[in-house]
Write a protein that binds this DNA or RNA. Structure first.
Lengths: 197, 197
DNA sequence: GTCTATACTTTGATAGAC
DNA sequence: GTCTATCAAAGTATAGAC
């Protein structure tokens, strides 16, 4: 069993706290408490302080969530089913975590969009990678190059917007509805997609 | 020319600041500055302090944005065109405000979803009203009752998610793509919708 | 790399005169 | 209802020993 270093514990704590309560409401002391670390450790590993830690948290949680979504998507026989399972899985997680665990960077992305250019770029990098990943999978499923990117934007926007509605209303109805709509969109754009490896 | 009272100036200032930077990053002093008001006035009109002001800001900006969207939607000859114009208008506003003016309650909704039950309910009330409004219009356009609510969830989620992607990436591509997708969804669900009063 | 202790700033909120 | 002055707490960040 691998020992988890202080730096990794700091990032892990930040991932959970930023996901649930955002950047501004999360104090450094709260992160240090949860990571069982000291001020000196944080400023040793992240000389830039809270913002530098936040950038690392955004990159890590964004990449982790991308991998999770890709694994769910790729586990299904076709793209429409894959997308549907991503949304249904998100709904299940919402229910299982009292509507706390949703998109790990959504709250931070909105908080920093007009106030912190460095962190805004960090969130943009994550979203760009997600769009590229979804676009590539839709092309493989048979969508045209132009349609694939449009559809990727729509699917990711649907997911993010449904997360917001579900968390605010404490209902998974928006996510379940989005699952059906997203799957239908993919089915229409990639009608020939079928049995796959 | 009507004099704007102190209470209204406080709410107005909150609307702008919460829209752009969210709840936690916005200090009361910043609101007071922008409203040209004093601490005593704020606690006179809102004895509950920042949270009570925030609840008023959420309700007011949510209702205002609903009215704006409805007026754009209803100005078009059919539901599909109406929805498309709502999204295109949102993209234009993003471009015209350096990606600052988007959904007035989105950032706050995510910030408070798991941390402040009173304010979470305030955002839920706003979203519920939006869903009801869109559902009613889609029913009028010819969608079945069940389809209409599903579609309303999808359209609003698309709008919110597209706002997020656009602000983070400083591009209106996601919103323009969402406009096409949303209009197509409405057209499919209400194919008989046409010339209207 | 980690410890304890602290400096400095900003925050939300209140008191009391007028 | 608005003024000035101020409070206690929490925020980020740093210093210096080990």
């Amino acid at each position: 069993m691998q020992t988890v270093g202080t730096k990794e514990r700091l990032v892990n704590a930040g991932v959970g706290l930023f996901t649930r309560q955002g950047l501004a409401s999360t104090g450094i002391k709260q992160i240090l408490d949860e990571a069982d670390a000291r001020f000196s450790s944080l400023y040793h590993y992240f000389p830039g302080g809270k913002d530098e830690l936040a950038a690392a948290v955004i990159a890590r949680s964004g990449a982790d969530y991308q991998r999770l979504v890709e694994s769910v998507w790729d586990s299904q026989p076709d793209a429409a089913t894959g997308v549907r399972e991503v949304f249904e899985g998100a709904a299940d997680v919402l229910e299982g975590t009292d509507y706390a665990d949703a998109c790990p960077i959504a709250t931070v992305a909105l908080e920093v969009a007009s106030t912190n250019e460095e962190l805004r770029l960090a969130t943009a990098d994550v979203f760009d990678a997600w769009v590229d990943s979804a676009t590539a999978r839709l092309v493989v499923a048979g969508a045209s190059a132009g349609d694939a990117r449009t559809l990727a934007h729509a699917v990711i926007a649907l997911l993010e917007g449904a997360f917001m509605l579900c968390r605010a209303t404490r209902s998974t109805d928006p996510m379940r509805d989005a699952a059906r709509v997203a799957a239908n969109l993919v089915r229409q754009a990639a009608p020939a997609d079928g049995a796959r490896g």
